[in-house]
Simulated assay, not measured.
Amino acid sequence: MTAGVQTIIYPVKDLARAKAVFGALLGTEPYADEPYYVGYKDAGQDVGLDPNGHAKGMTGPVAYWHVDDIHATQQALVAAGAEVLQDVADVGGGRLIASLKDAEGNPIGLLQDPGK
């Protein structure tokens, strides 16, 4: 079961320039501002900037589906023909993410918040 797409992560090469652009777009300061990740919340949407995204193989923004059980969801997607790009990993505070690609090569992000 999903709670829908609530997070979009953009791979960026110049974090300072990306912060300026997204700050202007969203009209707010980031809630997380670290050298490895900058995150904004706006209108119920989480927008992240990942300066290591390109090194992880991201070629553009990835939408992350919020799920109750990331391991079971990943298994179901693989059984249906998806390929794992990044296995389930804790990115801090118990938040788990994973990324896969569908049969057409489109990215699928999964995210499970702590306590789920």
Rank of each mutant, 00 (worst) to 15 (best):
G4I: 09
T73A: 10
A89K: 14
T28H: 03
A98V: 11
K101R: 15
R17A: 14
L110D: 09
D68G: 15
K41F: 10
K116T: 13
H66C: 09
G109N: 04
V38Q: 00
G92Y: 11
M58F: 11
H71E: 12
G53E: 03
V91T: 10
V84Q: 04
L100M: 08
D50P: 01
L49R: 01
Y64W: 01
P35E: 01
A32G: 01
A18D: 02
Y10S: 00
L25E: 01
T73Q: 10
I108D: 08
G60N: 08
D68L: 09
A16D: 15
A16N: 12
A3N: 12
Q112R: 11
K101G: 00
V47M: 08
E104H: 12
L77S: 06
M58S: 05
Q86P: 00
Q74R: 15
N52C: 00
G53W: 01
G4D: 09
A43V: 03
G57A: 07
L96D: 11
Y31D: 12
V88K: 08
G94A: 09
D90H: 05
A3F: 11
V38G: 00
D87T: 13
G39N: 02
V84A: 04
T59G: 11
H71A: 13
G39M: 05
Q6D: 07
A16G: 04
Y40H: 01
L77T: 06
L25Q: 02
L111H: 14
V62S: 04
Y10T: 01
M58L: 12
A89M: 15
D50E: 02
H66W: 13
R95S: 11
H54P: 03
Q86V: 11
I108S: 08
V91A: 06
